[in-house]
């Protein structure tokens, strides 16, 4: 009987150590079409279908012991989303709601994060050089980002940005001025 208690205690301890703080799980970039933070974690069953069909292979699962290891996350700096919307079509529980692979529908329904520009590091803004890579890779140029001022520095419009991270991925390594902030 005591051995059984010990085993059950060990199992309980293992279970508790797997249980995470919620705050950590909430602030992550999720695949496009994801339910809002909170609802997404409740609905995703960790089946990895979204990651399996992702052409740029930007969807991954945390490899460390955490509550996130069962849900898909994106590291946009390493690999950005190309907005093909295939992941939204295969989700069994609609944790990712289906979105048509069409620029208008994507602009209306996808919000993966909010762009943040550090002007001190951005080459046109700090005067260290000319660069417009973010503008060139943006799927919604002149809407999500436009070039302004004498040096043609980027100005982001978060309300029109889907948060795909192509700009963050393209931002040259000596600058790394752009960061897509996860939804609160």
């Amino acid at each position: 009987m005591s051995r059984r208690r010990v085993l059950l205690g060990l199992a309980a301890a293992a279970a508790v150590s797997l249980v995470p703080r919620r705050s950590r799980a909430a602030h992550r970039i999720r695949p496009p079409g994801a339910l809002p933070p909170g609802a997404f974690e409740k609905t995703c069953i960790g089946c990895f279908r979204c990651a399996e069909v992702c052409p740029p292979k930007c969807i991954d699962f945390a490899s460390v012991l955490s509550a996130d290891s069962g849900t898909p996350t994106l590291d946009l700096r390493a690999k950005a989303c190309t907005l093909c919307m295939r992941c939204t079509q295969v989700c069994p529980t609609d944790a990712l709601r289906p979105v048509a692979a069409e620029p208008g529908a994507v602009a209306a329904q996808v919000r993966m994060g909010t762009p943040q520009l550090d002007r001190k590091r951005c080459l046109p803004w700090n005067g260290e050089g000319a660069c417009s890579l973010c503008f060139q890779v943006c799927p919604y140029p002149d809407r999500a980002v436009e070039l302004v001022g004498l040096n043609a520095g980027p100005l982001f419009h978060p309300e029109a940005c889907v948060g795909c991270g192509l700009c963050e991925e393209a931002c040259p390594s000596l600058a790394r001025a752009i960061h897509i902030e996860p939804l609160p």
Binding site: L18, K42, I45, T71
Partner: peptide
Amino acid sequence: LLGLQVAPLV
């Protein structure tokens, strides 16, 4: 209670 899926972890 936790608002996340535990089954995929265990």
